[in-house]
Design a protein around this nucleic acid. Structure first.
Lengths: 234, 234
DNA sequence: GGCTCATAGTGGTCCGACCACCTCGCTGGT
DNA sequence: ACCAGCGAGGTGGTCGGACCACTATGAGCC
């Protein structure tokens, strides 16, 4: 009573993907563990190496597997960052109304994360946040400002203590995403406003005031959100 | 100063993936549009068909492309549902502390979505919600209850008017995810409590009371969240 | 002991062939 | 003139084999 008799559903590659995913889900493959070689895996599942390679490639882009040339194929640590890297693709390929939706989600998550951070942030983490805040205010190079802006929010998200949330926010703030939206936003002289909003967020964090932090973060993202909404509306 | 001289970064397949993604990002490939054949694409990028197939497979699992056997390769509609299907993989492969983190995110998003729904839901949509609520209370089959439970929340998420958020919540409520967590939760006789919570959510929706809806939804997810947290941290 | 380098084994790439399936135009009938 | 049926061509899906690029291991040398 085995399942050797090919169920014949979908392509063989798709089946191979499911099989490997199942192996990991059932714990038969642990994070960091090395898999058999492509050739062996293909033989085990009774498919060609080409098809197996496609399955491996698929699981690689999903952040489940990692292929090291000359060494072997390994299961990733399956941490939030590994699996949610693909979230950036969504942000990169979205346009129009969906960009607003993504910002709305970011506003919800970022405000909550900032509130949590206000309650939990340590002095060391707060110092790190201040470092990026100062660096952001000390330069006029948009590239550098953007980099420190990202790091500023990344530190806060990390301080919130929910790695998964931090990974999602990371995807929602992917470089290309921010660059596309902010190019226009910053051109309207929003630097000063952004500066004030960041200062407000920092004050709330330093005071360990969750509600103030939530409000400040929501307003911060909301500003961009409203601007983008206006851009699309006319 | 052109880039014709093979940049030589990463594998050829990875480069092909980026190239195609860039084509879509730049608008040179519209949603729903048909791509050249695998053979032509491979020739255009100067790589083998095998490598091109791996690139296509990668973009397929990401929900960016869709391959129709015998017909051709097409760009998906690039809607939230297409691109966020991979989110289910995260939920399926997460365990332990990360499950709690995912529920925390779901609590945040679901409560907000329910609040938005309370303000925006139409009579037709509300009737649909009531249908699933009634069906859920009329049976004892766990499978059927779970199905209507999922539909209940799906209708609410849809009424919130943010497709992207609905797609994420869909991923966070994937069948296998819910089944894994709820198997244990429901065994403790939580049916009655779940029923009351669903009724409270429905009342808030019918009354178009966003704050009550937010509270009811947060409490609903929070119950499961707390139970799971207790399971892990004895 | 520590270093060098040959070697076996791995993933990465390419090629060519064949199969399964879909599409569309052609054909033949009505 | 219209339409149903059929067939050929084109498409993605699969396979097998060959070779290349890279890594890791350990034997051998200094």
């Amino acid at each position: 009573m085995d399942d050797e008799t090919a169920p014949q559903k979908g392509t063989v590659t798709q089946r191979a993907i499911e099989r490997i995913k199942a192996m990991i889900g059932e714990g038969r493959l642990e994070p960091g563990q090395r898999l058999p070689t492509e050739r062996d895996l293909a033989a085990q599942l009774g498919i060609s190496r080409s098809s197996m390679r496609e399955a491996i490639r698929a699981l690689t882009v999903l952040g489940v597997l990692e292929a090291r040339h000359g060494s072997g194929i390994y299961v990733t640590q399956l941490e939030a960052g590994d699996l949610l890297e693909t979230f950036g693709v969504v942000a990169d390929l979205s346009r129009g109304p969906r960009l607003v939706e993504l910002l709305e989600i970011r506003r919800i998550l970022e405000s909550t994360a900032t509130a949590l951070a206000a309650a939990r942030i340590t002095d060391d983490q707060l110092a790190e946040v201040e470092k990026h805040l100062a660096a952001m205010n000390a330069t006029d190079d948009p590239e550098e400002i953007l980099a420190h802006d990202l790091a500023f929010h990344r530190e806060i998200a990390a301080a919130a203590g929910n790695e998964t949330m931090a990974a999602i926010l990371e995807g929602l703030s992917s470089r290309t995403f921010r660059a596309r939206v902010w190019r226009g936003y910053q051109e309207e002289g929003a630097f000063e406003r952004t500066r004030r909003e960041h200062a407000a967020i920092h004050r709330a964090l330093a005071a360990h005031d969750p509600e103030a932090a939530r409000a400040a973060a929501a307003a911060h993202v909301g500003e961009v959100e409203e601007w983008l909404r206006a851009q699309l509306g006319p």
